[in-house]
Design a protein around this nucleic acid. Structure first.
Lengths: 114, 114
DNA sequence: ATTATATATATAAGTAAATTGAATATGCAA
DNA sequence: TTGCATATTCAATTTACTTATATATATAAT
């Protein structure tokens, strides 16, 4: 499993992006989706995920609908317009970060040896 | 500037990798190198960097040599064998993390619409 | 002269964002 | 009737930073 402390700071972005790609989702479903997408390499713990969902709701980035499925409550989350715009910003930041990281960790091969 | 909270968890790896690429370096030099490599987008603060360097030394991943340059102390850090092996592990984890992130954030285009 | 900027390291206090662990509750398969 | 999957919640703790402050010298600008 991927060292989860690398996830610090990226969890909000991941959640927002998944909601964008998949429409409304509930918490448990999000953890399963992440497991699936990463072939079991990334496990979102509930202690990490639910506080993020609650925070996004408090901020107005997502809205919720409670539904009952086999006597269990599912709380569906979906992006608001504000949430979509925040997602776009976060995705932009994330891409810059990934570029920066790759500049540091994968220095242009052949370039420093001319 | 890249939102620095995205760096959480990657700082140790960055430092270890830079020491591998550049041989021995001192703290101030490391911050300048990161600035240079990322075109000023990532600024390592000293409050983040020096504790990491001290931790790496305490763990035996790096060793230090103090030198005097223009009446200022420079503390050069270089990788030990143990540090090189830890760097390799961390780089592997980092790559898996980056792969995982890109699976989540850049779902295979065209694949979900067949 | 003196002010500002660059070089160089250190550490304490505070905060954000996780981890870990426990609690609650139901459906279904072995 | 035991265990696993489903589904959410929250408190206590830990990690890994940020922010702010301190110390000290060299050099360029005004």
């Amino acid at each position: 499993m991927v060292s989860t402390n690398l996830l610090k700071g990226s969890l909000q972005t991941i959640v927002l992006k998944l909601l964008k790609e998949n429409g409304r989702m509930y918490g448990y479903e999000i953890t399963k989706k992440v497991e699936e997408l990463t072939a079991g390499k990334v496990i979102l713990t509930y202690g990490a995920l639910y506080p993020v969902l609650h925070k996004l709701e408090a901020e107005g980035s997502v809205v919720t609908e409670s539904e009952n499925h086999k006597n269990r409550t599912r709380i569906y989350y979906s992006l608001t317009r504000a949430g979509q715009s925040i997602m776009k910003e976060k995705m932009k930041e994330m891409k810059e970060f990934l570029d920066a990281i790759s500049q540091i960790l994968n220095p242009s091969p052949g370039f420093n040896h001319v």
